[in-house]
Structure formats: structure tokens, C-alpha cells
Simulated assay, not measured.
Amino acid sequence: MDEHDLQLRRALLEAFAAGAPLPEADYRSLAAQHVVALDDDGRVLMAHPFANHTAGARVDCGGRTWWGNCAWDAFGIVAALGLQDATITAQGVTLPRDGDAVFGVLVPASHWWDDIAFT
């Protein structure tokens, strides 16, 4: 990844974290490197762990909401932002804050990018 791509990735992730509009940019290079997933119009659909849609897992904390594509991404948001007392809701189920949470991933990691929006 070159310096331009690193700066663009940083700006994109900072915008997601802050709840700000995403930078206007050409993200094809990041998509080719599996850093982001683009929709059919070339807009950022996902920049892991963040999602630019509300069909996945929701993270709520301190009156703010972030979205991940799945529960795995929601855990990544909590870790990346250092959130305390966050609530994760995935597929209509609020995951417990105490104890262990277990969920299954039916697709092997080596095939996630075959259809990353589904996985």
C-alpha cells in the first residue's frame, strides 16, 4: 500500500469513527487490496470494521451508533474505538455484555472475499 492509499484509508476510517461524511475519493485501489468493498456505483459499502449501511450489526455507546457488516465487525468497532459499555445488536439480538458471546461463521475465512457483503 503506497502513501496515498494509507492516507486515504486513514481519512476514511477517521470519518467512520467520527460519524462524519466519507471523503470524496477514488477508492478502487483500496478495493483491489481488499481494504474496502464498493457498491455497484463505486461508493464505499464497507471499510472494515465499519459499514456504510444499516443492514448489519449495530454498535451503540454513549449516545452514538456505528454499523458493522456483521457481529465480527461490531466487535472490531468496539475494540478499535476502545468503547466501554457498548451494546452490540446483530440480527435483532442484543449480545450480552457479561460472560462469553459465541457466534458462528459458516464461511471459511479464505472465502470471505468471494462475496464479502454476504459473509
Rank of each mutant, 00 (worst) to 15 (best):
M1I: 07
H4D: 14
L6T: 04
Q7I: 01
L8V: 03
R9P: 03
L13M: 09
A18T: 03
G19M: 04
P21S: 09
P23A: 07
S29F: 03
L30Y: 09
H34V: 00
H34D: 14
V36H: 12
A37N: 01
A37W: 13
L38E: 09
D39A: 04
D39K: 04
D40W: 03
G42I: 01
M46Y: 15
A47W: 08
H48F: 15
A51W: 07
T54I: 05
G56E: 07
C61V: 02
R64E: 11
T65S: 10
T65Y: 02
W66S: 05
G68A: 09
N69F: 03
G76V: 04
V78Y: 13
A79T: 08
A80F: 03
L81P: 07
G82I: 07
D85A: 14
A86L: 05
T87M: 06
T87Y: 07
A90V: 02
A90Y: 15
G99A: 01
D100R: 04
A101F: 02
A101D: 03
G104H: 04
P108V: 02
A109M: 07
S110C: 04
S110M: 00
H111E: 15
W113P: 01
D114A: 10
D115E: 05
I116M: 11
F118W: 02
T119F: 15
T119N: 12
